[in-house]
């Protein structure tokens, strides 16, 4: 089962599916079915209905009375009561519209965003969405109802690649606009000055939000695999550069490494989860990161999560 789930959430396979809602469903269901323990938890106090136990469900919610009467396993489900607001901040700048594998960083980022939205809504939490390039282009207020998911999918399917990036400025703006404390998930290649990026993240943290940063990079951006003389065409207003890649590889990788090290150090200082992802990374990494953070938040939140 784990084997099949891995296959399902392989970006190479998911990329062949065009509808983003279907992508999200495949990712999440594939991921969930691969777990021994159900990620879905009832967080409400009002009983709503029973459902049949599936492998992975928490045994704490098994209705032993029904089991005693019918010799069948049922889980008690409660009326939902949203206690987490998650804000997905997705970079759709021009630099995200770049990829050397089957899909671009933006395809990958939107899929991650859709899958997270699906998972969050399935967990009866609220999710909001903001798309940005050098400014916030589209926002959806957070909501936990089913219709919210369709709206999110609609926005994600209608994304057009934007202009330049200004991650730091946009994050600062997000910090100002999102008042309700919750979980902010930033999905971006973070192209720009690392100090600006960290400053923006700090602003969000200062508002009491938990932050997960999915740092998207294309595999080529991590390995710089070019050999022949290449004219690198700059995006987002950067100039073109004609260069012998072999001669630049070391320095380039050094620059990437330096950026990531600074970013990691800065995030650790702010207790921000930084998840490095390249577009070949299995999509469950994003979900696992979210769930881990969600679990930690639930534990830290005391009575809010049971």
């Amino acid at each position: 089962m784990a084997e099949s789930s891995k296959n399902v959430i392989d970006p190479g396979i998911i990329s062949r599916v065009h509808q983003i809602d279907l992508r999200a469903r495949m990712v999440v269901e594939g991921y969930v079915s691969g777990l021994h323990k159900s990620p879905y938890k009832g967080f409400s106090v009002e009983f709503a209905e029973h459902r049949e136990y599936v492998a992975g469900d928490d045994l704490r919610y098994l209705d032993w009375k029904v089991f005693g009467k019918s010799d069948r396993y049922y889980i008690k489900q409660y009326e939902e009561e949203t206690n987490l607001v998650c804000h997905l901040i997705v970079d759709v700048s021009e630099s995200m519209n770049f990829g050397t594998v089957d899909w671009t960083k933006q395809d990958y980022a939107l899929t991650v965003a859709a899958a997270l939205s699906y998972l969050i809504i399935r967990q009866h939490d609220a999710v909001g969405l903001a798309l940005f390039d050098d400014k916030i282009r589209t926002t959806l207020r957070a909501g936990g109802h089913r219709g919210q998911l369709q709206r999110i999918f609609g926005v994600l399917e209608d994304v057009k690649s934007g202009g330049d990036t200004a991650v730091g400025k946009v994050l600062a703006r997000v910090a100002e606009r999102v008042r309700r404390r919750g979980l902010v998930i930033v999905i971006s290649d973070l192209v720009g000055d690392v100090n600006d990026v960290l400053a923006g993240l700090r602003r969000i943290r200062s508002r009491g939000h938990d932050v997960i940063v999915f740092h998207m990079l294309d595999p080529a951006e991590l390995t710089f695999p070019f050999e022949r003389m290449t004219m690198f065409e700059g995006l987002e207003g950067h100039p073109d550069l004609l260069a012998d890649p072999k001669s630049l590889r070391a320095a380039y990788l050094e620059a990437v490494s330096t950026f990531r090290a600074k970013l990691r150090t800065g995030c650790m200082a702010e207790r921000i989860d930084l998840v490095d992802m390249d577009t070949r990374t299995p999509l469950d990494v994003a979900l696992s990161s979210y769930l881990a953070k969600r679990a930690a938040q639930a534990r830290a939140g005391g009575g809010t999560a049971r």
């Binding site: 630099s95 192209v191 950067h238 260069a243």
Partner: peptide, 10 residues
Amino acid sequence: QRWAAMEWLL
């Protein structure tokens, strides 16, 4: 080659 990570390359 279109290139996104131009800042690092430059």
